[in-house]
């Protein structure tokens, strides 16, 4: 089985979409445990992420790897349910673009990477008011809140969301990470968030560090 796992990992690393989907179907048909197949896929996406961080791969390649992973999961999820295996999430993340900002490309890339790394991610979309974040964090008992924004007008809604988390008594048990075009350490300090991520790779590393699962 190690050989086919390696083959699958390599196929996703080299972005061979058809081959990945074919291998996944073959292995499912052969009765292999879905979790093992998922592990091989995750390994491939993680290696794509590493190549991205080293500057050997680029954003388009990261996105394509995420897409292939997502497509493979369409076959794997029903099999997972049938097998009654449970995928153990690394942690629960609530994420969205803050109120007043409609951009979501960066956020969506971060979601792809977090999901393929094994996080359970609840995506609230764009233009999300502070209270909506708070309600979702409470509902799903999130470990991490991700706030995205591309415009400078997102700084105040980020700050207001952090304040709303305080007011709701959730600040202590849920870390907050911000990200997006103009965010940097200055913006992190201004908003009162815990972390600022410059790209999707960093977002995954920070999320793992925040939850102690690195």
């Amino acid at each position: 089985m190690a050989d086919t796992s390696e083959q699958l990992t390599r196929a996703i690393l080299e972005l061979r979409e058809e081959e990945v989907l074919q291998l996944v179907r073959q292995r499912l048909a052969a009765g292999e445990a879905p979790l093992e197949i998922i592990a091989a896929l995750r390994q491939g996406v993680a290696e794509v992420g590493q190549k991205f961080e080293k500057g050997e791969y680029f954003l388009t390649e990261l996105i394509m790897a995420g897409k292939i992973f997502k497509e493979a999961m369409v076959d794997l999820e029903p099999a997972l349910e049938r097998s009654r295996q449970q995928s153990q999430a690394l942690g629960t993340v609530v994420i969205g673009t803050v109120k007043g900002d409609l951009h979501d490309i960066g956020k969506n890339i971060v979601i792809i990477m977090l999901r393929s790394a094994g996080f359970l991610v609840h995506d609230l979309g764009i233009d999300v008011p502070p209270q909506t974040f708070v309600n979702k964090v409470r509902e799903v008992n999130a470990d991490l809140l991700g706030l995205s924004g591309l415009l400078t007008v997102s700084f105040n809604p980020m700050k207001e969301t952090v304040a709303a988390m305080h007011a709701a008594g959730l600040r202590e048990r849920c870390r907050i990470m911000i990200g997006g075009g103009p965010t940097d350490e200055r913006v992190r300090a201004y908003t009162g968030a815990d972390y600022v991520g410059q790209d999707a790779g960093q977002a995954v590393r920070l999320a793992k560090a925040a939850l102690g699962v690195a």
């Binding site: 972005l15 979409e17 388009t60 996105i63 394509m64 897409k67 490309i105």
Partner: peptide
């Protein structure tokens, strides 16, 4: 859209 176009580049 950025994601769809990215897939087009590969497909």
């Amino acid at each position: 859209s950025f994601e769809e176009f990215t897939f087009d580049l590969f497909r």
